[in-house]
Design a protein around this nucleic acid. Structure first.
Lengths: 335, 335
DNA sequence: TTCGTCGTCGTAAGCGCTTACATCGCGTTG
DNA sequence: CAACGCGATGTAAGCGCTTACGACGACGAA
């Protein structure tokens, strides 16, 4: 226990050098008030001199807390996930926890990775779109609190999401009532993710309320790449539609660009709307009408809730829904 | 050691229930080949039944490795950091390590947080723009390998960055030679970050090569918010300049939009260029001429290098520079 | 038959912290 | 002046893993 064997300093080296017990060193670092000022200073001097940094793993083992949360996202494209992470990190940091991120896109052993992660964190938040098996989800939930994002499906697990159905309905109704659109298409795959499903539901609801028959959705992922295909699909047969409600902005921007390139008048001939309000939405011409979500706040709230769960386990799972905001620009037909 | 006291299962509970020693359980999980198939199956069955997840902290303590890297970024705005993180996470994951992110923006005890982080990871990468004191940097470097991003300043620490000076020079020369610009302004604060400094250096170099006198930079942060101010500053006095080289795309987009709104012909009357090639750059009209950086690859390479450092400590610090690519669109004057 | 050898598994010693509890001086108080 | 209380510190028992080492059979070779 004496004189570090050449390696990095441990609490023993510090205690040794300062002529105190390791308990005192620990106290100096965690509860400075409980140790006499003179001893404290002596210890701190040694800490500084040796460049001692307490080992987090050892501490975690002793206190039975990792002081870290896991955040599992499919990827980090676009502002959505980045904002989410930003908000979450802030909220977690306020509680002294760090966040370890796991990006599942392109990985084939997601279940294994998620389980492994579960051993290194105190709580875990899972994006709804993440491909985890029910078995893994159950195992993880048995071990620690789990919060799910943008997926209100499983009522048994607590979830957070932003409002989708009503905003989609409102947006669709705007196109129908204000801009007189009668032949709208929804772009996105409802079965792809829960929020897309809800957005399409709102799209359908608005049609029913207006006595119109909603068209089947045009399948597409969240990526820009699908834009060209969707656009040409819309163009073929002389452009049967007069409005496109896209599941997100990437899609909308891409589709709109193709339509404009093909000489189609947007929004004169056809309206285009998106979802997310990415930066590009306010820089393109015409400005993209879209729906803005309080993603940063969402992230922060999730973190705060997680911290609460960590203190006080037993509590019925709640379904939190944050409000979204319709952002009208020119692509829908507004001035 | 027998029958878990009600809490989560440990390796002891599993061993107990499977009628083997904890060593065997550990082997089953880490080196399945070293244990007889029948025992292995029995243990795995119990693991499944109990939902056992090994505690990462305990493992880390035992193997003296956290299997995690720290990534310290100022924030997560824009595609740059997100792509960096994406690439890094991928590279780290390939080595079985997870990454814990620390966002410093808005936090006032960055040094403390960084030190604390150093106790929970095996290696750490620091964005150059992050405000860490030299003392902390030294302490952390003494404990684990540190890689710095976008800051080639301290030659003693290994760094990664993308090429700035030459691309900036090339871009500026393009404006001068091809588009006949003679009165360019650089927007951004060179003292703000190392890459801005380098970009301005390239701007200056191009001027000198062309026998022109470079103007002083127009100070601005990386945020869009500065756009309006910069734009009006450019407009006052009858728009003395015929080109604006911005330190990044946010700035460029914002400035360009203001100029256009003020009725200025871009690029007819004045060229505008950015840096980063964000999504909006290819959707605006005119398309934004900018510089594209291989950020994702950068992140991955940094992670790979970190893994190498973790295996084989002693190695001279190198300064890695990744090539960038000039993306000519219409905002500079190109067709 | 005896003695390696090898595969399989248990024993036990840590890994570097935290913290309940015991200890030890002192200044107080009756 | 003795008993007591209290603040400051040390003692030591874990926390849940990994792994060197050794024990133990079974088996093939001598």
């Amino acid at each position: 226990m004496v004189e570090s064997t050449g390696r990095r300093p441990t609490i023993y080296s510090v205690a040794d050098r300062a002529g105190v017990s390791i308990a005192t060193v620990s106290r100096v670092l965690r509860r400075p008030g409980e140790v006499r000022a003179s001893t404290r200073d002596r210890v701190l001097a040694v800490v500084e001199e040796l460049g001692y940094v307490p080992d987090g793993a050892a501490r975690s083992l002793a206190v039975k807390s990792h002081e870290a949360h896991g955040l599992v996202l499919p990827e980090l494209r676009g502002p959505y996930y980045a904002d989410l992470l930003t908000g979450y990190e802030q909220g977690a940091a306020e509680g002294g926890a760090s966040v370890v991120v796991l990006l599942t896109h392109g990985k084939d052993d997601v279940d294994l990775l998620v389980r492994r992660l579960a051993g290194r964190v105190d709580g875990m938040v899972l994006m709804g779109a993440v491909p985890v098996s029910p078995g893994t989800l159950a195992a993880v939930r048995a071990k620690l609190p789990v919060l799910v994002l943008a997926d209100r499906h499983q009522v048994s697990v607590e979830s957070f999401s932003t409002e989708n159905v009503r905003s989609a309905e409102q947006l669709t109704r705007h196109l129908i009532d204000v801009h007189g659109r009668r032949s709208l298409r929804f772009v996105g795959s409802p079965e792809f993710a829960d929020d897309v499903r809800e957005r399409y539901a709102g799209f359908v609801a608005a049609h029913e309320a207006a006595g119109l028959v909603p068209a089947e959705p045009v399948p597409a992922t969240f990526r820009e790449d699908d834009g060209p295909r969707v656009a040409s699909l819309l163009l073929e047969g002389g452009l049967g539609s007069d409005g496109v409600v896209c599941a997100n902005d990437e899609l909308a921007l891409s589709v709109m660009q193709r339509l404009l390139a093909a000489g189609v008048d947007v929004p004169g001939r056809i309206s285009v709307t998106g979802w997310d309000d990415v930066m590009a939405a306010r820089y393109v011409t015409p400005g993209l009408t879209t729906v803005s979500q309080p993603v940063r706040e969402l992230g922060r709230e999730v973190a705060v809730r997680m911290r609460a769960l960590l203190e006080d386990r037993h509590s019925a799972p709640e379904q939190h829904v944050l409000p979204t905001r319709l952002v009208l620009r020119q692509s829908c037909g507004c001035a």
